[in-house]
């Protein structure tokens, strides 16, 4: 990799932005670099990065998944029901929640493959169905009497300010990076996303790969929601907003800032992690600067816009210099 190319890479740009904003917030907002704020920042970043990774794993196929929030909350509520309603020990309930996420993902993937329709319209419909069934079954009630392990895990700190949730997320990201780089399954997922026709001809079962990607997305969404449960100490049906729509912007910000192509076939796990971290930092910093909690959403939208524009300019530059 040539030096110019490295400095023009997305990841380098994100690291630079994170450093610049950390300096600005550190100087302008008192308490931004306090151990407590760093702890909450890391904890929020853990959830946001996981949400971004969940979307990323479907974008790989050239599709998208609007149902992430609905799937995550449904899985977390299922885990809550296993504990409170059935009396299953919590490690089994966690596994049950993840399995529920995978199952919902399978429904999405199988419907997309069987119908041949774009995942946008399928996941738009399943988002409504999953969330509706979840609300119907739970009567919109929360599960609040969860074992203390959950809230203890959410409150735990390593070295004064590192949340174990962040470590879980980073470990997951490492596994995903290994998956896409080193394993046959990961390479086949990317190939199926880049050129479905060519992939099919080279013996890759594209349909099976698409279903697998959706299942992976479901598991990651379930993990994000279970982390929220640990943070809140309760499984709440509204923790991702109406129909889980609150996760939608966050889910796209990470991968798009990180340079994952929406057409599929190319993925950047590190970029997604950095992108989602930058977003979390901006959220926290803007709140601490007291710009007004209500304006944060506008800034995030503007950021997505600027990010895609910059990315376009960067690609045009690379293409002109014959570097990409």
């Amino acid at each position: 990799m040539s030096r110019t190319r490295f400095f023009l890479s997305n990841e380098f740009g994100l690291v630079l932005l994170i450093a610049v904003f950390a300096a600005i917030f550190g100087l302008a907002a008192t308490g931004f670099l306090s151990p407590f704020n760093l702890f909450t920042l890391g904890r929020n970043a853990a959830v946001n990065i996981m949400i971004g990774l969940s979307m990323m794993s479907v974008i790989v196929t050239g599709g998208l998944n609007l149902a992430i929030g609905a799937m995550g909350v449904s899985a977390a509520m299922f885990a809550g029901w296993l504990i409170e309603g059935v009396g299953v020990p919590w490690p089994l309930a966690l596994a049950g929640g993840l399995a529920c996420g995978a199952g919902l993902g399978f429904i999405n993937g199988a419907t997309v493959v069987r119908s041949g329709l774009h995942s946008f319209i399928i996941t738009l419909a399943t988002m409504s169905i999953f969330f509706g069934v979840m609300i119907f079954l739970t009567r919109a009630e929360s599960y609040r009497d969860l074992p203390a392990v959950f809230s203890d895990f959410g409150r735990m700190k390593f070295a004064g300010y590192v949340s174990p949730l962040l470590l879980v997320t980073l470990a997951t990201a490492l596994v995903l990076a290994w998956l896409y780089r080193r394993t046959v399954t990961g390479r086949e997922m990317l190939a199926a996303g880049a050129q479905p026709g060519a992939a099919e001809l080279s013996g890759i079962r594209v349909g099976r790969m698409v279903i697998l990607c959706h299942m992976l997305s479901g598991v990651l969404a379930a993990m994000a929601a279970l982390m929220l449960v640990a943070r809140n100490g309760a499984a709440i049906p509204s923790m991702a907003g109406q129909l889980g729509q609150d996760w939608l912007l966050l889910a796209f910000l990470g991968p798009v800032l990180g340079g994952t192509l929406l057409q599929g076939g190319k993925v950047s796990v590190l970029g997604t992690v950095l992108g989602a971290f930058l977003v979390t930092m901006l959220q926290s910093g803007l709140l601490m600067l007291q710009i007004g909690a209500f304006w944060v959403q506008t800034f995030l939208g503007l950021m997505l816009l600027i990010a895609v524009l910059l990315d376009k300019a960067r690609r045009a530059y690379l293409a002109r210099r014959n570097l990409a």
């Binding site: 939608l248 929406l262 816009l305 376009k312």
Partner: peptide, 18 residues
């Protein structure tokens, strides 16, 4: 920009709502 309507309107959704 030539960027897909999905990404643009996702961003403006957030801007207008904000």
């Amino acid at each position: 920009t030539g960027i897909s309507a999905f990404v643009i309107t996702l961003a403006t959704l957030s801007i207008f709502k904000g």
